[in-house]
């Protein structure tokens, strides 16, 4: 029963957006859709507002660095529906030379800090974000530590409070 309903999420998504949904799978029971980054806001709005889907919670947003693959980065959204009690994972690939994706703050206001963290850790830029700056690290920090080519042991000077 649950599986049947879950696949409806992916069916509706592919039915509505066609070739903009690049790939889907339900491995390990998690429904996953890889979509084109250009339409991410549209897709998220659809997932939130469609009466059969109703993904009103955006639980998590993160980046993943697939160094050596092209496009290099992936932005991963985890959504949850309070009404339907189902989940979906939406992913979009962004290339290294142009790591930009539209911000989903207009859809879920709570994604603000999650996008800042993805920027802080991976250098992914969220177009339209009102305050895209570092969140866990400090402004003077150089580089993006969760990128796979950032050495784990690299140390950077600790800076004191700024006047």
């Amino acid at each position: 029963m649950a599986e049947e309903r879950n696949s409806i999420v992916l069916q509706k998504l592919t039915g509505r957006f066609g070739s903009d949904v690049v790939a889907t799978h339900s491995d390990f029971g998690d429904d996953t859709a890889l979509v084109r980054r250009e339409r991410i806001v549209e897709i998220c709005t659809f997932l939130r507002d469609d009466p059969d889907l109703r993904f009103d919670f955006a639980m998590d947003l993160t980046g993943v660095d697939y160094l050596g693959e092209e496009p290099r980065f992936e932005v991963v959204y985890h959504l949850y529906s309070l009404e339907k009690k189902h989940r979906v994972r939406v992913k979009a690939r962004v290339p290294e030379e142009d790591p930009v994706i539209d911000s989903v703050i207009p859809v879920w206001v709570g994604m603000d800090w999650f996008e800042r963290e993805a920027y802080d850790m991976y250098g992914i830029l969220f177009r339209g974000h009102p305050n895209l700056k570092r969140i866990l690290l400090y402004e003077q920090f150089e580089g993006y530590p969760l990128r796979k080519d950032y050495p784990k042991a690299r140390r950077q000077p600790t800076v004191g409070p700024q006047e």
Partner: peptide, 28 residues
């Protein structure tokens, strides 16, 4: 593979998103 697993912790949903490329340690 990749999984997201959520539990109800004392403060709310504690989720772990794990990416594995196989082998002895996590990819992310």
């Amino acid at each position: 593979g990749e999984v997201y697993s959520a539990t109800e912790a004392a403060n709310g949903e504690l989720g772990y998103y794990i990416v594995s490329k196989g082998g002895g340690g996590p990819y992310k």
